[in-house]
């Protein structure tokens, strides 16, 4: 049980996908302008990360590894995740239109999101069991959610700030993102010592 908690917390705080591993920066900068779209995007990412792990972990363990095709990991995962997201979109549109309406616009964006691909590949690299891999994906998704919500707060403050003309727009956003990510370095080593 402790191991699951360690995996979850370290995925959220220490190895935060956006702020420590720098994966999924595109939606982090693109969709974080408003809180509601940031939440919608993050929920979609959590959902897709879990689905993608559930699909790719068995493929790697029972299809690729036994046949000595481990080197095809990246290309097969991209293919499977893209197809999976499309399938999820079709299913949502048919059976849960309300959810499709709130997550729908973000789903195609996630199809080729590097954070999702990163989670699935790192799950294999770390040698996680299926349950551990799922917990890690959940933690990574929550970490993405945390980063998005935090950063949308930062950006709403930037809206009203008196920024020098040269820094307006993307430059100040990148500076703010770097400072936010710097603050997450403070979590390094916390979790290991918490359960030591």
């Amino acid at each position: 049980m402790t191991k699951f908690i360690i995996i979850l917390l370290s995925a959220v705080f220490i190895n935060n996908y956006v702020l420590s591993r720098f994966l999924g920066i595109c939606p982090f900068l693109g969709v974080s302008k408003k809180l509601d779209s940031a939440t919608g995007m993050s929920l979609a990412v959590i959902f897709v990360m879990l689905m993608a792990t559930a699909a790719t972990w068995p493929i790697q363990m029972y299809l690729l590894n036994p046949n000595g095709l481990g080197y095809l990991q990246t290309i097969v995962f991209i293919l499977v995740i893209a197809a999976l997201v499309q399938l999820v979109e079709i299913v949502l549109k048919r059976y849960i239109p309300a959810l499709h309406k709130s997550l729908g616009v973000y789903l195609p964006l996630i199809t080729t999101n590097c954070a999702v691909l990163g989670v699935t590949i790192l799950n294999i690299d770390e040698g996680y069991t299926f349950a551990e891999a799922m917990v890690n994906s959940l933690g990574s998704g929550l970490g993405f959610f945390l980063a998005m919500v935090m950063f949308s707060g930062v950006r709403s403050k930037l809206e009203g700030a008196d920024i020098p003309k040269n820094f307006q727009g993307l430059p100040i956003t990148l500076i703010a993102a770097s400072i936010t990510s710097l603050s997450f370095m403070g979590f390094g080593g916390v979790i290991e010592n918490l359960f030591a």
């Binding site: 299809l63 046949n67 095709l69 095809l72 290309i75 097969v76 293919l79 499977v80 893209a82 197809a83 499309q86 399938l87 079709i90």
Partner: peptide, 14 residues
């Protein structure tokens, strides 16, 4: 061949 097969399966499912 495996990638093509997986691709075809995905396409068929979709």
């Amino acid at each position: 061949i495996p990638v093509v097969i997986i691709g075809i399966i995905c396409a068929a499912v979709l």
